[in-house]
């Protein structure tokens, strides 16, 4: 039951994040290029610099920022649960396998299990880096709508084809999600996902899931065909996205300097 709720929470969070990024606040008003630059430099620094201070400061800062713009706690948790789970697995693995200085020892069925100080520190660093990286990506996603992110990426000379795929995915993922949900509901109404004591119930559910997946692929193909026709009728010449950025304005320059100072301060504090 808890597993199902967590799964649902994670799915919903991906849809809610987009809605949060549409809100008007101090961060969504900032130039997307600046946010991308800031987040990428922080990410790079987190990966390169040793120690726990920088990741912990980044987590604290980004949490303050996302809470400040009233991001629901459920969304924050849902975005962090999968990477945190992965990080904790790493932590346990490193704790039990790396190092020489024992922190503790216990026995399971006559097998001696020991935890080591060095492994704990390495595991903790990995966990902190994963959490900080996820926190910074979460900050970017709740403050920057995907289409703005796409434009910013084009400005940074990311290949157009990648940006176009990103933008088309963003446009059609909601359409296909709705279609998938409609098929699922139609299947459920005709007992396609039998939940009960029937021993063959899981087989039926599996069959329905595969049918659903196949139908979504077929519909995506049909839609792609129609969309290509619509694009051709409006003179499609191989170019979908366009760079609409003009010159940086005065507020952007101020924000740029503030971000630069913030990144420098974080690096200095962590050394």
């Amino acid at each position: 039951m808890v597993k199902v709720q967590v799964k649902r929470m994670i799915k919903e969070s991906f849809l809610t994040v987009d809605a949060i990024a549409q809100r008007d606040n101090v961060f969504t008003r900032m130039d997307a290029r600046l946010k991308v630059l800031f987040c990428m430099s922080i990410l790079g620094t987190i990966i390169v610099l040793p120690g726990l201070r920088l990741p912990v400061s980044v987590v604290a800062l980004t949490f303050t920022a996302v809470v400040m713009i009233r991001t629901p706690f459920k969304v924050i948790l849902a975005r962090l649960v999968p990477p945190l789970a992965l990080g904790l697995i790493f932590l346990v693995f490193m704790l039990l396998t790396e190092g020489q200085n024992r922190l503790f020892t216990f026995h399971i069925l006559d097998i001696e299990v020991s935890g080591y100080r060095e492994g704990f520190l390495i595991g903790l660093t990995i966990l902190a880096r994963i959490t900080a990286s996820m926190a910074i990506v979460m900050f970017l996603s709740v403050t920057t709508p995907i289409y703005e992110l796409g434009r910013a990426l084009m400005w940074f000379r990311i290949p157009e084809v990648i940006v176009e795929i990103l933008l088309l995915t963003y446009r059609y993922i909601f359409v296909l999600w709705d279609e998938g949900m409609r098929i699922r509901e139609a299947q459920s109404l005709r007992l396609g996902y039998y939940v009960g004591s029937s021993p063959g119930g899981w087989k039926r559910s599996l069959r329905s899931t595969f049918t659903l997946m196949a139908m979504v692929v077929i519909r995506a193909y049909d839609r792609a065909d129609h969309t290509f026709s619509a694009m051709s009728l409006r003179g499609y010449n191989g170019k979908l996205a366009r760079n609409t950025y003009g010159a940086w304005n005065r507020i952007d320059v101020k924000s740029f300097v503030s971000c630069f100072v913030l990144v420098a301060a974080l690096i200095f504090a962590s050394l």
Binding site: Y147, R171, H226, T227, R234, Y236, L240, R242
Partner: peptide, 22 residues
């Protein structure tokens, strides 16, 4: 079905698609 025709992420960008191609 307007979903077949509206492929850009925002309304403004979608409307601009044709004129840009011209």
């Amino acid at each position: 079905d307007p979903n077949d025709q509206l492929f850009a992420p925002t309304v403004g960008e979608d409307v601009a698609f044709g004129p840009v191609n011209l």
